[in-house]
């Protein structure tokens, strides 16, 4: 383990210039990986929320265009009074608080969700939600 770490540190120093020059491409790869991971995690949401407007029939509102969508703004969805009384748009910060524990953002919301404790996991999920 320690020799592996030592090799890795040496390699990191030697490769840093190469890595930096490749950072634009790598960052795109990273984003793709993050989105892919978020898509896996969407398993937590799928039972209540469709990802498009067509495949309805779930008990929660669909999430197409959720990023930057004003809160409780879908026509025809029966939001809780608690959510209707809010005034914000779903940006990354709001989504992050919401996904950690919805009641902390909007007490008495009618979304039943135990929350995602891991910050990394929430980031991945938000990265995916941005693509919807």
């Amino acid at each position: 383990m320690s020799s592996y770490r030592f090799t890795a540190v040496v390699a990191r120093v030697l490769l840093s210039a190469v890595a930096l020059s490749a950072s634009v491409q790598a960052s795109a790869d990273d984003d793709a990986a993050l989105v892919a991971r978020g898509k896996q995690m969407y398993m937590l949401c799928q039972s209540c929320h469709a990802v498009d407007e067509q495949s309805g029939g779930r008990i929660g509102p669909h999430l197409a265009g959720i990023y930057q969508r004003p809160v409780a703004s879908l026509e025809g969805y029966n939001y809780s009074q608690a959510l209707r009384g809010q005034d914000f748009a779903w940006d990354a910060a709001k989504l992050d608080t919401w996904l950690q524990r919805p009641y902390d953002l909007v007490p008495n919301t009618s979304m039943s969700f135990a929350g995602v404790a891991s910050e990394d996991m929430r980031k991945a999920l938000i990265a995916y939600l941005k693509t919807l």
Binding site: A8, R12, L15, S27, R37
Partner: peptide, 19 residues
């Protein structure tokens, strides 16, 4: 693999298990 491990901290801190 070693290169990958070395490059990761510079490129981002998130692991990507899918890949």
């Amino acid at each position: 693999l070693i290169k990958g491990a070395a490059a990761l901290p510079l490129l981002g801190t998130l692991r990507a298990p899918v890949l």
